[in-house]
Design a protein around this nucleic acid. Sequence first.
DNA 1: GGTTTGACCCGTT
DNA 2: CAACGGGCCAAAC
Length: 106
Amino acid sequence: MDSFHDKVYYLVRRIPAGCVATYGQIASMLGNPRASRAVGWAMRAVPREMNLPCHRVISANGTLAPDHVFGGRNKQKEMLAAEGITFDEYGRVNLNLHLWDGQTRD
DNA sequence: GGTTTGACCCGTT
DNA sequence: CAACGGGCCAAAC
């Protein structure tokens, strides 16, 4: 369990409810700020059976993942909203409000 | 072990 | 301002 994507799962799992993290941020935490793509790769590679809050992982500009990943267009949006995440009129997450500090602070 | 792809990011056209 | 391309890294084929 030392592979890159394994660390991604571990890190994503640490994201507290009501917070979101960006691919670049996670990649940077792993030590590869350029590995944002690899993070996205790990996300699409991880089975949904896993207890992984992938809905809390979004792109740097606040846009959520493509709908086909969650099987529903606003599916991810609903889950985030249920956790207290708010969106702007463009359907994007307010990173300034919910962006994860990188520490579970818990 | 080289090629392809992937839920990205950033700069340039 | 929207679209395109290049670049980065890691895993699957």
